[in-house]
Design a protein around this nucleic acid. Structure first.
Length: 252
DNA sequence: AATTGATTCAACCGCCGAACT
DNA sequence: AAGTTCGGCGGTTGAATCAAT
C-alpha cells in the first residue's frame, strides 16, 4: 500500500510558522485539545496538514517546553543515554523533561558528537573505559532475536558502553564482578518500559504486579524469576540514576 | 562592506506499527 | 483478513545566522 504524502493536497502551507498561525493553533488546542490531528487544522482554520500542526505543537508550542541552551548536566545525560540507547531520541527525550526529541537530535549532531569525538581522541592515550561492566558472551547476543537497535538487557548495554571513553564522564557507572550479566540470567524487558517515566517505587510495584513484561529463557523456575527481576531492576536503576549522577532527570 | 563557507535548528519526509473499518 | 487511517519516530533538508576572509 502506498500512501500519498499528507501535504500533497493542494492549498496546504509549508515552511516556517507565522506568529498568527502559532496563535491560532495554541488557542484552539487550549479550547478543544488535540483529539484528532488530521481534523484539527480544518477545524482551527489553519492551512496546514495535521502532521505539521502536531510537530509545531510538540516541538515548539507546548507549554512545558524548556527553551535555551542545554546545561552541562543535560549534555552528560544525553551522552550517557545515547551510549546505551543509540539514536532512540524519543526515549532519551522522555528522560529529559522539557526537551524534545528533535532538539536533542539537533544538539547531538551539532555539538555532542563532535565533543565526544574530541574527548575520545584526547583520552585515547589514557584509554580507560567509563564503564566497567563485565562483558557477556557475545555469541549469546548474536544468536538472540534481539533487535540490534533495542537495548533490552544489561549485557547488551555493557558491551556497547565498555568501549566508550569520555573525560567528562570519567567515572565508573557500575562495577560488580560477582554479578552474572549473561542473557541467560537477566530477563529481557518489554520495550514499552523505556517509553514510560517510572519512579523506583513505580518500577518495583509494576514488577510485582507483573505490568512490565519480562521474558525469561525457557526452564527458569518461577520461584527464581522474582530475584532475577530484582537484580535486573537494580542494574538499570544504578546505571541511569544512582551512578549516573543525573539530578536533572525526572524524579525516580 | 561584501563575499563565502560553516553551523544551527525548525520543519519536512518517508516509514512503521497500532488501531480502526 | 485485508485495507485504511493515524500518530509517532528517526533521518534529512534548507533557510537563517554566524564567522572568517
Amino acid at each position: 500500500m502506498v500512501r500519498a504524502p499528507c501535504c500533497e493536497k493542494m492549498g496546504l502551507k509549508k515552511g516556517p510558522w507565522s506568529p498568527e498561525e502559532d496563535q491560532i493553533l495554541v488557542s484552539y488546542i487550549h479550547q478543544h485539545g488535540h483529539g484528532n490531528w488530521r481534523a484539527l487544522p480544518k477545524q482551527a482554520g489553519l492551512l496546514r496538514c495535521g502532521k505539521s500542526c502536531r510537530l509545531r505543537w510538540t516541538n515548539y508550542l507546548r507549554p512545558d517546553i524548556k527553551r535555551g541552551n542545554f546545561t552541562k548536566q543535560e549534555e552528560d545525560t544525553i551522552i550517557t543515554l545515547h551510549q546505551c540507547l543509540g539514536n532512540r531520541w524519543s526515549a532519551i527525550a522522555a528522560r529529559l523533561p522539557g526537551r524534545t526529541d528533535n532538539e536533542i537530535k539537533n544538539v547531538w549532531h551539532t555539538h555532542l558528537k563532535k565533543k565526544l569525538k574530541n574527548d575520545q581522541s584526547s583520552q585515547d592515550s589514557k584509554s580507560h573505559p567509563i564503564v566497567s561492566i563485565p562483558k557477556c558472551d557475545t555469541k549469546v547476543l548474536e544468536n538472540s532475536n534481539l533487535d540490534k537497535n533495542v537495548v533490552t538487557s544489561p549485557q547488551q548495554c555493557s558491551s556497547e558502553m565498555s568501549s566508550v571513553t569520555d573525560s567528562s564522564l570519567e567515572k565508573t557507572v557500575i562495577k560488580n564482578e560477582e554479578m552474572d550479566y549473561s542473557s541467560e540470567y537477566f530477563p529481557q524487558i518489554d520495550e514499552s518500559f523505556w517509553s514510560e517515566e517510572l519512579s523506583r517505587e513505580d518500577a518495583d510495584r509494576q514488577t510485582t504486579d507483573e505490568k512490565i513484561q519480562f521474558q525469561f529463557p525457557k526452564g527458569v523456575e518461577s520461584s527464581e524469576k522474582d530475584s532475577r527481576i530484582d537484580d535486573s531492576m537494580d542494574f538499570w536503576y544504578n546505571l541511569f540514576i544512582r551512578a549516573g549522577d543525573m539530578p536533572d532527570l525526572p524524579e525516580f
